[in-house]
Write a protein that binds this DNA or RNA. Structure first.
Lengths: 215, 215
DNA sequence: GTCTATATGTGGATAGAC
DNA sequence: GTCTATCCACATATAGAC
């Protein structure tokens, strides 16, 4: 799962100042893109948040699309790393709880990243077309195959692997993407750490029991 | 759970032509807001999709915000109706599968509505502040109380009710909001009806077993 | 009720002084 | 490398003819 993007970034030597400013801009851009999506975000907003003149954003990233791709690439890198760790040799009773905990931890630590990705998908994923290629389907099938082997080995009940994966994704990312609604429901201004802990416990309990891994 | 909005809509008599055009505009607006969010959507796009001149949109809905509130209000009406049907007297083994099926059916029939709501939440919910008031928290607690009574009555295992609700929401809405990713993973251009059927079965099986309602 | 024309602001992007 | 000034396209919104 690669996501080529450097073509859109300005091609200049990478000095100290450059690295520092790029980081500043990328963080500001992630915030803005998470709230307003690609079309809804203005370069001026990004510049204001980064504390730099608008022209500097264009100096470091050729254009708005280049900036957006750079933000997306960071997120995808972050994403793919975890899910590839599951293997058929593992015991699902050990690695599934770990996976759920990791995903919830992502929602806690990088909510903005999760939201940028969610916004892009909601928009129809026009900037992820090369990411969602045949390769992606193959990758997904190989991940689903792990669950099939666990089922064949009697390590878990025969549930549809694809939909189990969607359940894992949907339930965990919900804590980042819908944080505002959860905050309103629980009457908290920002989600307390315990919320994420209880979420992990509850999800783990229900899913592992539901898949016949625990009883 | 009320969501007052008529103040933002143009206040004129409701003739036949008006009703027809308003419906046309609201449907077009829902499509556009679902893809680009509030800030990212232009009145021109809405007008083009509705097949009307831009000025007519302003004639029927005073301004962009009024149009957006009208779209949001439709969605919220649709939303609240289902979840209120769960009651402590019911048998969760009967009504929970029905609730899951209804929510998945919503994702199938009204994906755009789900996405407009998701976009709004991702944006920080600035236009739902009056909806996410104290009332909302009280409403949520009363819904969670139903699960607590089921637990007290020995009808299900003691899982955290709030997080069970978030699981139900997150897992079901995922099929509308992340349809593009699911399509890519399954190698389908648009999700086949069987996908939603299998989703319902799999979710029902895992969650009911996970909650000790089935074994 | 409908639609053209337009007023006024903000969008992305760049030229060019420093 | 940095930032002001500016170009031009497009945004929301409205005036006013029909």
């Amino acid at each position: 799962m690669q996501f080529e993007v450097d073509a859109h970034r300005a091609d200049r030597p990478a000095g100290r100042i450059r690295q520092q400013n790029e980081k500043l801009i990328l963080e500001a851009a992630e915030q803005e893109f998470a709230r307003h999506g690609f079309k809804g975000t203005s370069m001026q907003q990004v510049a204001d948040r980064a504390g730099l003149p608008k022209a500097n954003i264009h100096y470091y990233f050729n254009n708005k699309l280049g900036l957006y791709y750079a933000v997306l690439a960071n997120i995808i890198d972050l994403w793919d790393s975890t899910f590839n760790e599951l293997s058929a040799d593992d015991d699902p009773a050990v690695v599934l709880p770990r996976y759920i905990a990791t995903k919830i931890e992502f929602s806690r630590k990088y909510p903005q990243a999760s939201r940028v990705f969610a916004m892009e998908i909601l928009s129809g994923g026009p900037h992820l077309s090369q990411y969602f290629q045949q390769d992606y389907r193959d990758w997904f099938r190989s991940r689903a195959a792990v669950f099939e082997q666990w089922i064949a080995a009697g390590k878990m009940k025969a549930v549809d692997p694809a939909h189990l994966i969607f359940l894992l994704w949907g339930a965990t990312q919900h804590y980042a993407d819908f944080a505002v609604q959860i905050e309103a429901a629980l009457g908290q201004q920002t989600l307390a750490p315990e919320v994420f802990d209880t979420a992990t416990e509850t999800l783990t309990e229900i899913i592992l029991t539901g898949c016949g891994i625990r009883r």
